[in-house]
Design a protein around this nucleic acid. Structure first.
Lengths: 207, 207
DNA sequence: CTATTGCGGATAGTGATACTACCCATTAGG
DNA sequence: CCTAATGGGTAGTATCACTATCCGCAATAG
């Protein structure tokens, strides 16, 4: 398969395929001559994965590279592969000021009470603290307990997700399911929450 | 309050405040002279809101403007204000191809069976269809039912959110709670899901 | 065998976005 | 009065994800 066929098979323009090759998001093809190479199904699959991460997950090229790097380490235990995928995902966290630091201490303490076994440096902790700090900035005098309902829902979802991953036929499938699950189902969850909000809003506020 | 005080009170640099004024994200101050204006608490609050939407919610300046425009319509019924806020939120949906159109038909049909009362044109429908299309692109031969668990969690969360909004003291507080809730709690929910995944992953996969 | 098309590799350019810098005449404050 | 700050405008910057162009060579159609 030459580059034009790869492009046609995936819908990705040739210049973009070249760009991904340069950026290391796509492994080089099998060289057949100094200026010829042939691509196969693995390249098609990889391109699809890259586009899903970029288009659906909203990941930057750098973030995609990090995720792919994590995927490519067959030595990594499953749990660490998931952690690597999470760390590679974007988390545009602003500077840590006093307000944010206080929020972080409180959310950490609250997370402890929930009984979750978490790494002390997990990036999602910052995101949660940022959410609390934002609420306070806007005048909501709340504590981390406002997240209780969300935490219970997240716990139920995550339990099933991990059970699903654990049932994967092999390690590679499990790791890939982890990455795809994190990115794609996150998007789906967000969409479903908005749809559910619309439903309840209509039910409650309209005649 | 002059611009330098406004800047100090919010942590937003003066050039950025000027930029937001130009872009219409911040209403002009009370003019006291041809080249002087005074700002008040409403400007502080608005700046905080803009920064939260941008930093925590990841909204573009254009999206923030849309949201603020929706907020500024006191005539709008509560339900429509929520719809306006949802519509204003970003939803980088790629081009609709045949695969995506099929996914959209299936997710729509599935949503019907759930009993949710939804507008036919709600943008979140596209996001959900995009998630399903992405899964299929990656070889997951699944239907919309994979989202069932997420839909139940979303439904429970949304029911409480709408109840909370309905308890707001006045309409303006309700609309603002809607926007903040959608943006900030979405972020929190995503963070909590990742934390819960980490917990269950550690519990299941490590010694 | 030759002409056209396609290839890979490299360099440079594009368009969108979100600021950031500078300049100016004017005004506030000590 | 003099210095610093102000509002307003124009222009510049940094980043990002491509996209365009060029080159010499390879493949292939006639």
């Amino acid at each position: 398969m030459r580059i034009s066929e790869l492009s046609r098979a995936t819908g990705v323009p040739i210049p973009t395929v070249k760009f991904y090759l340069r950026e290391g998001l796509l492994h080089p093809g099998q060289r057949t001559a100094p200026n010829q190479a042939s691509y196969d199904a693995s390249h098609v699959r990889r391109l699809h994965l890259v586009r899903v991460l970029v288009d659906v997950g909203g990941l930057s090229v750098a973030a995609v590279r990090s995720v792919l790097t994590a995927l490519a380490r067959p030595d990594l235990p499953l749990h660490d592969a998931l952690a690597a995928a999470h760390t590679a995902l974007p988390r545009d966290v602003a500077a840590v000021d006093e307000r944010r630091a206080a929020a972080r201490r409180e959310t950490d303490a609250w997370l402890d009470t929930r009984g979750w076994r978490l790494d002390a440096a997990t990036p999602a902790r910052d995101d949660l603290a940022a959410a609390l700090a934002a609420l306070r900035q806007l005048g909501w005098e709340v504590g981390p307990e406002v997240f209780e309902r969300y935490a219970r829902a997240a716990d139920a979802i995550a339990a099933e997700e991990i059970a699903y991953v654990a049932a994967a036929p092999d390690r590679e499938a499990a790791v890939e399911a982890t990455v795809i699950g994190t990115v794609v189902f996150e998007r789906a969850l967000v969409a479903l929450r908005r749809l559910a909000e619309e439903h309840h809003s209509r039910t409650r506020f309209t005649g």
